[in-house]
């Protein structure tokens, strides 16, 4: 066993790459859940983003445009969930599962002609000065644009939820939609916007898989990343910076175990792969037992304006 072959700087750099898709999806879902909506269709929205991003990038040779279109289309796609749950009052759990089903089917059909193709990928940014710092430069400042953008989104969400009026309204709607409604806030509209935001970031996350991390298109390529994103939101107890931390931990466990194996350590892979979920449960239990810091109170409950 020779752990000296593991380069910590490279390890952290590659765990950031590996974590970015789930980070993007999770930060969006965190906003959705903060507004009191549980959308289990993350996997479906991600894979739609993955295929749309890929198709656009291949046809236009512009990966950035691929990301933009992925966000837009997945945002629109999430509106199916939004309309069904918010206007037609359907059950959120079942509708979310349906969204995943439709997303997987739709993406596979759209992506057929693109299987086996290579896409243009995002170039790593060449950051002057910072990129040349030993160790840190390689670790933090040699990435592509989307990695920084994902961190930027986290910061924006944090700022939005904490310091803006709109963010306060969103949290109020998530905690008690009846009271929020009584105060004159447009519960449904707020939630629709949150769902759309969640769809857009999930789409970005999916596109990051097909355009940067893998990069190619294959049917079902998100392989459960959307479900991991759901776990991260809980792990993070719905706090933006903890979502970032959680995503890097979840991504990190995978990357770390692969690196340990490559370095020759024989490790029980199954136990390691279930550990993030067990930790998530523990975290959830701790925050719930402390009282009001747990899930948004209206999470998953239908809202109907009775007045």
């Amino acid at each position: 066993m020779d752990f000296s072959s593991i380069n910590p700087a490279l390890l952290i750099a590659s765990l950031m790459v590996s974590a970015t898709p789930i980070l993007l999806a999770a930060i969006g879902e965190a906003v959705v859940e903060k507004s009191g909506v549980l959308n289990l269709g993350v996997e479906g929205m991600m894979i739609v983003g993955a295929v749309v991003g890929f198709i656009i990038a291949v046809n236009t040779d512009a990966p950035l445009l691929g990301f933009i279109c992925a966000a837009i289309v997945s945002g629109i796609f999430s509106m199916i969930f939004g309309i069904l749950t918010q206007y037609l009052k359907s059950n959120q759990v079942a509708t979310g599962l349906g969204l995943t089903l439709v997303g997987l089917g739709l993406s596979a059909l759209l992506g057929r002609p693109y299987e086996g193709m290579k896409s243009p990928t995002l170039k790593a940014l060449d950051i002057p000065f910072l990129g040349d710092i030993p160790v840190l430069g390689k670790m933090l400042f040699s990435h592509d644009l989307m990695i920084y953008f994902s961190v930027f989104i986290v910061a924006m969400v944090w700022w939005f939820l904490k310091f803006t009026h709109a963010g306060m309204v969103l949290r109020a709607v998530g905690e008690n939609h009846d009271a929020a409604h009584a105060l004159g806030y447009k519960v449904v509209r707020v939630r629709m916007l949150a769902i759309m935001f969640g769809g857009a970031t999930s789409g970005l996350g999916g596109a990051y898989i097909s355009l940067a991390r893998v990069p190619q298109w294959t049917e079902g390529m998100t392989a459960g990343a959307g479900w991991i994103a759901l776990a991260i939101v809980v792990f993070a107890s719905w706090r933006p910076w903890r979502v970032l931390f959680g995503a890097y931990i979840f991504g990190g466990v995978t990357v770390l175990q692969l690196n340990l194996q490559a370095a020759g350590a024989s490790i029980p892979v199954e136990y390691l792969s279930m550990s993030p979920y067990l930790i998530t449960i523990v975290v959830l239990v701790i925050i719930s037992s402390r009282g009001n810091q747990g899930a948004p109170a209206s999470l998953g409950r239908p809202f109907h304006a009775s007045s």
């Binding site: 893998v214 990343a225 692969l258 194996q261 490559a262 370095a263």
Partner: peptide, 27 residues
């Protein structure tokens, strides 16, 4: 030989991660 088991036949993202881990360790 540095051998990594990923316990799946088909998971592009995980395969990419495994390849990256191997390459970063000098393979």
């Amino acid at each position: 030989f540095n051998i990594v088991w990923i316990y799946t036949w088909f998971d592009p993202a995980k395969e990419a991660d495994a390849a990256t881990a191997l390459i970063e360790q000098g393979c």
